[in-house]
Amino acid sequence: MSWYDKILPSGVRRDGGERRTGVPEGLWKKCLKCEAVLYRPDLELNVEVCPKCNHHMRIGARRRLDIFLDDNNREEIFADIEPVDRLKFKDVKSYKDRLTAAQKSTGEKDALIAMRGDLLGLPVVAVAFEFNFHGGSMGYAVGEKFTRAAQLALEHKLPLICFSASGGARMQEALISLMQMAKTSAVLERLKGAGVPYISVMTDPIYGGVSASLALLGDINVAEPEARAGFAGPNIIEQTIRQKLPKGFQRSEFLLEHGAIDMIVHRKDMRGTLSRLLSKLTHHALDPLLEAVPQLNQEPQLNQEPQLNQEPQLNQEPQLNQEPQLEDETKLEQKPQPVVETHAD
């Protein structure tokens, strides 16, 4: 590891599975929506939501579960499920090679991560899609892991939460992918029959087969602000109807207005809101100590002067010392309101 890598905060280090492909790496990150230049460690503390315009940036599956579940008591489940190339699919490249490349770049076996853990003390099963792995597409491995996680939830009567982000069914597994829609829907129907709650959280973007199965079958469907979700992609619809699509088409706000989802939840409120919902559905009292921590309805702080005027500096001693702490010990306390802390001084 070079001296430069050493001073980088954990979120931008190039080692391990943390690397986000397609994103310029460094201490500064430009918001794709408002183009504000944001200081990455601050952005991390603000759960990758732009403090200027509230844009919810895409985050990986592990990061997603990391900021959602309590720090203690969590374990990854069904990590050994691997994709299978039953069709020996080959186009310009073989599917096998594509899989290997995706596994190398993301550090994941396939596009779904499942964990068992607590949400403010309430035991849950949570799964999240890794969009950087083949566009979060659902083939056998995703469908199988989702199904097993749901079965575990069913067996132990634990609420199931799914954060979806997916381009749809995985073409390279052809009809096996399509049948994962039927499979995941079938197991969710069992949960429904047994009174085990399922909350589907839709994060940008969700299309095709994932949208037309597990993503819209929640007892409660929620979405992050401005997430795009629909059955057919905007390009296909435009080609079919030969007209421009209205502004905001297929965004969360559109989905809410048309009755497809129950609510839009800010990323920072996700833990609080979902735990409140689940505690009522399961008649389970939340741990009062843990409950006191999150500031559920906190407004994102918009006053961010210091950041904009600040030049990029390589000398970041304080961060270096701070970072491991944030990752490991104080995260629970820091998680809900770090922005305020960081920027108040």
Binding site: S213, L217, A232
Partner: peptide
């Protein structure tokens, strides 16, 4: 794949 289809929840209907 049309606007009205999406508005009335084609994904949910199939799911």
């Amino acid at each position: 794949p049309g606007i009205d289809s999406e508005e009335r929840g084609i994904s949910e209907a199939i799911a």
